[in-house]
């Protein structure tokens, strides 16, 4: 018998639904990496997994373990906070690198609009 058998039925259903939703969003995000065509479009796809996808899985984890241990289990909040703060940094780094390559003419993707003032600076 698994420890999960102690979980009341309603909670098991809610937890299962949340985990499936989160996993589904991560899957859709990964599918997006294949389906979307250019680099800048692809960067949008993984944010599904890191926002609502991760969020619902963490919510499910909090609910499940809070009920099993009959005390609030809250350290998932830390995971959410750190994921929210660090993912944009990674994505922005990737995008800035792509933009730089595009602007010096090495990129293969779509060219971002040229901007007069940054042109002058260089």
């Amino acid at each position: 018998m698994t420890p999960l058998a102690d979980l009341p039925l309603w909670a098991a259903l809610v937890v299962a639904a949340l985990v499936l939703l989160g996993a589904g969003l991560c899957l859709i995000g990964s599918v997006g990496l294949i389906r979307l065509t250019t680099f800048y479009q692809r960067v949008h796809a993984p944010t599904l997994g890191t926002t609502l996808g991760a969020g619902s899985i963490l919510l499910a984890s909090m609910l499940c373990f809070s009920l099993l241990e009959s005390r609030p289990v809250l350290h998932e909040i830390l995971i959410a906070a750190f994921v929210t703060v660090t993912t944009p940094v990674t994505l922005m780094l990737l995008v800035r690198a792509a933009l730089y390559r595009d602007r010096i003419g090495e990129g293969s993707g779509e060219a971002p609009p040229p901007r007069s003032s940054s042109e002058r600076k260089r």
């Binding site: 800048y40 949008h44 796809a45 944010t47 944009p88």
Partner: peptide, 14 residues
């Protein structure tokens, strides 16, 4: 920047 990038569908570029 964090809000725009964390929201799916929008991306802070420069």
């Amino acid at each position: 920047a964090c809000i725009i990038t964390a929201t799916p569908g929008t991306l802070w570029v420069d």
